[in-house]
């Protein structure tokens, strides 16, 4: 085990798999010589060469589309969108080409698309988004979102090995803020939920950065025993773990950093309403970003992103129900 940041753990996952499998190549804007806008691939070009750490033209559709072509003839491309926001320019290739290829003609598309996502640092409307729900709604894509350093590495390796297109949500605000013990060598984190903290009175369901917000908000909440469930994977969604947690706690708060409408948490809430109604001792409460673009100015941004205080308030309200 080695202690490292979430960012280094992503790098470690990429490096481990590139050493193990020569079919893996990285594609993206400024990832080679510069080492990536966030330095995830710093030093990679020296070890693996410019062919496998490819500085591409500034063309997101081009990155995804050529990755699909390379994948169906045997390579394992890992694409970096410089910011998750920019994936809108490659959306068509992901949704219509990559996502439907297997269903239509039986041809797997083994690509991984890394999306540095999330806000909290005045990135503004085009460098702060959490677009995971776009892809949850599109058949044929898997979507994962690690919250810890250990899972960041394990989910990266698992995503590359998974023969399907995988959207890998990496939260920018966790890159250097979160550190943890990471196993050495190669391992895979399963596409299933994890209990981040055991508890009995209420469960907070979250993923990505919001797992940390939830843990902080409920670490000491009037002595209540609060479970935090880290989804880790949004597609497939670990329905068994969600329903099990609801059955155990009977009260649920669902937290998204994404915009409220049709977010991952909306799907989780719908699942609970359909399949766990009898287990509930109160309404499912949701905390999410309201349906506005992420504003730039710090007080405006802080006003929309789910905060420790908002999560705490939702939990209190439900505990008193």
């Amino acid at each position: 085990m080695t202690e490292m940041t979430y960012l280094r753990a992503i790098s470690d996952g990429l490096r481990t798999e590139m050493r193990d499998d020569e079919r893996v190549l990285l594609m993206g804007e400024d990832i080679g010589v510069y080492g990536g806008a966030f330095k995830v691939t710093d030093g990679f070009i020296e070890e693996f060469g410019a062919d496998r750490v490819m500085d591409t033209p500034l063309a997101e559709s081009g990155i995804v589309g050529t990755a699909v072509g390379a994948a169906v003839v045997g390579l394992r491309p890992v694409c970096e969108m410089q910011f998750a926001d920019f994936v809108s320019c490659g959306f068509d290739q992901i949704v219509n080409v990559a996502g439907k290829m297997l269903y239509r003609q039986g041809l797997p598309v083994n690509i991984t698309v890394r999306l540095p996502s999330g806000g909290g640092f005045s990135g503004g409307p085009f460098h702060s988004q959490n677009p995971e729900a776009w892809f949850m709604h599109s058949p044929g894509l898997k979507v994962v979102a690690p919250s810890t350093a250990e899972d960041a590495k394990g989910l990266m390796i698992a995503s590359i090995r998974d023969p399907n297109p995988v959207i890998y949500m990496e939260h920018k605000n966790l890159y250097r803020r979160v550190k943890g013990e990471v196993p050495d060598g190669s391992y895979e984190t399963p596409f299933r939920a994890r209990v981040a903290r055991e508890g009995d009175d209420l469960v907070v369901i979250a993923y990505g950065q919001m797992v940390h917000t939830a843990l902080e908000a409920t670490a000491d909440l009037d002595g209540a025993s609060i479970m935090v469930l880290d989804l880790r994977s949004l597609v497939p969604l670990d329905e068994e773990a969600i329903l099990g947690a609801v059955h155990h706690c009977s009260k649920v708060v669902v937290v998204d950093e994404a915009n409220y409408t049709c977010a991952a948490g909306a799907q989780v809430s719908a699942l609970i309403a359909e399949r766990a109604f009898e287990d509930l001792d109160g309404p499912v409460l949701r905390v999410a970003t309201p349906d506005v673009p992420i504003p730039f100015s710090p007080p405006l941004e802080a006003a929309v992103l789910p905060s420790v205080e908002r999560v705490r308030e939702a939990c209190r309200q439900l505990l008193e129900y």
Binding site: S61, G62, Q93, N96
Partner: peptide, 18 residues
């Protein structure tokens, strides 16, 4: 796919692998 020039990028990607 029905968004026809999408396939130009897929073909370019296959050629890139070659």
């Amino acid at each position: 796919v029905s968004m026809l020039p999408d396939m130009m990028l897929v073909a370019a990607g296959m050629a890139m692998a070659f």
